[in-house]
Amino acid sequence: MRHKTFLWFFLPTGLAMLLFIAMPIVSVVTQSIFAPHPAVLIEVESCTPLVGCTTETTVDQEATATLRAENPMGRFVGLGIYFDRGHLAVQEIGQIWASNESWGGFFSELGNLPFYRAMAFTLTFTFIVTPLTILLGLVIALAVNSLHRHLKGLMIFFSLLPMIVTPLIGSLILFWMIDSRGVIGNALVNLAGDPDFSLKASTGLMWVALMVYGVWSSAPFAFVVFYAGLQTLPKDQIEAAQIDGATRWQQVKFVVVPHLMPLVTFVALIQLMDNFKVFEPIIGFSAGAHAQSLSTFIFNDLGGETRQLSSAAATSVITIIGIAILLSPVLVRTWRDFKGAR
């Protein structure tokens, strides 16, 4: 295809991505290094006879407006926003580091910094949910594969539901069930034997609940991919293993799993990236007090009455960097495939 023809075919989609993905990234990066102008304050001394003089601090609307009009970007602060208390908190970390002898104390104080708390949850969520998803998906795939074929279709249909359903809606449905008045929550209260037992009250339990949601909603994806992989499993390999006297477990371990390995890598990479973006369940579970992720951190900055664009932009950039790190193995592999294909 000639360059010119290609250009015409690609132009609409290219333009859409340029204007609404590439440009916003530039805009986000710029916003993150500029802080909004503070209001210009003036001190006015007003003197009234007999009472005396008082100085009042008021906002000089006119000067503020001129300042904002002159420099609509705000004032340049470099990496200041990244290092402030709401984000990487370099200064605070230095203090905590200096004042703590042990690692335990250091980490517990680190947990008081909002950004690190969000980071801790995001990473814990990502690295616990991903392996569990893969494991559960694999077991479901093996179990469903041994079913009668009429049942398979039905199982696939119901298995898809937790994944297809809107994440916010799925998390709400689970949340209403684990509410202390809901059916599962109620059962847990009886099980714990404590009428005041509530998932919502405990940070640890809330984290567990969020991760249960994470596994529940993404296991179907792993299942479907592995199930498709099982259909291409070469029969003769299994037979050869059986002739060699392999037990069922050995067959799974030495024949099935190696055959599925490329798919495991694929699912793991997709899931790492998806779980790193964890967002809706925290909103749906109203778990903001116990768990924050990088995404909800941005969401809260943007949604408040004072839209803190610069702060949100800085977190966005950090999130994008995190995604880029997780994505790098995929990129390297795509590059190798491309080299190999030529």
Binding site: M17, I25, V28, S295, I298, S316, T319, I320, L326
Partner: peptide
């Protein structure tokens, strides 16, 4: 496109608002 695909949409939103 792959990189764009991996980015959470919420990170772009602060770029849209202004």
């Amino acid at each position: 496109a792959l990189i764009f695909r991996a980015m959470p949409p919420i990170t772009l939103v602060s770029g849209y608002l202004l």
